[in-house]
């Protein structure tokens, strides 16, 4: 059950997005997010959705994977839609009213746009970053992209390392949780019955062993890193040196055009 969470998981492949420089991908993602938030008329929404569809198609990630990542945040999207439907008032007569509840056409429109926007935002960024970039490449890209901030004494390398480690251990912790849950179930623990207080209490036998092993693992990792003479980013060389290629710049131009296109057909 816990294994089904695919949000933030790398899906190996060899598409145009897989090969794009991770630094460029971060820039592209920023552009994409800006474009998605700038869209407002239905026409610009159409361009936005087309962009998202093209990204998914070109990444060659199976649609099933993209949708399963989407399911994880379905609740938030549905909640947003409901809020928008009921809490937007319009100038015309309400479409439907009952007691204090009134639904206006504007509400439905807002809700529809919001759902589209969130869906595009999520699927697009997931495909651009999570699915097509390995965690190592991603943090490498982040570190390089933000390297200038070292000048103002920001520990860029340390942050990147922390991110790499955190990403690396998510699947491990999920697996661990699964194991501990099964072990406690075998001792008759029940996570699905009883009221809220009982259910929260039922989590204690999972959380304590999980924290204990996470701390132990962190200690062991620190020792292992020190054994290999890790002492921060100072003077550290890299196995893979990132190089931007022609296609990376071409991609940038396409994404800028996409953003500009959306801005031009705004109201």
């Amino acid at each position: 059950m816990l294994r089904d969470i695919t949000l933030g998981q790398y899906f190996p492949g060899n598409s145009v997005f897989h090969r794009t420089d991770p630094r460029m991908k971060i820039v592209l993602t920023a552009l994409y997010i800006a474009a998605v938030f700038l869209a407002d008329s239905w026409w610009s929404y159409l361009v936005m959705v087309m962009g998202a569809v093209l990204i998914i198609l070109f990444s060659r990630i199976p649609l099933r994977i993209v949708i399963s990542g989407f399911k994880a945040v379905m609740l938030i999207i549905v909640f947003t839609a409901i809020l928008n439907i009921f809490w937007t008032s319009g100038d015309n007569e309400p479409l439907w009213s009952f007691w204090k509840i009134r639904i206006y056409t504007e509400g439905l429109e807002h809700a529809g746009k919001m759902v589209l926007r969130l869906a595009c935002l999520l699927m697009g960024t997931n495909v651009l970053v999570s699915y097509t970039t390995s965690p190592i490449a991603l943090t490498d890209g982040i570190e390089r992209l933000f390297a200038p901030l070292k000048l103002i004494k920001l520990p860029v390398h340390e942050f990147a390392m922390m991110m790499t480690i955190a990403l690396r251990f998510i699947p491990t912790l999920i697996e661990e949780t699964d194991k501990i849950m099964n072990a406690q179930k075998a001792r008759g623990a029940d996570f699905t019955e009883g009221n809220l207080v009982r259910r929260v209490k039922a989590l204690i036998p999972i959380l304590i062993p999980l924290f204990v092993s996470a701390f132990m693992r962190a200690g062991e990792l620190a020792t292992a890193m020190e054994c290999r003479c890790y002492n921060g980013g100072e003077g550290r060389t890299r196995m893979t040196v990132l190089k931007t290629r022609f296609t990376d710049w071409l991609m940038l131009i396409i994404f800028i055009a996409y953003g500009v296109g959306i801005v031009l057909i705004r109201n």
């Binding site: 099964n182 072990a183 406690q184 075998a186 001792r187 008759g188 036998p205 062993p209």
Partner: peptide, 20 residues
Amino acid sequence: MRDLRFKVGLVFQYPEYQLF
């Protein structure tokens, strides 16, 4: 199912990680 788990006791691999 719970009654079954009391009848069939399972000790996992490295069970020391379940202590809490």
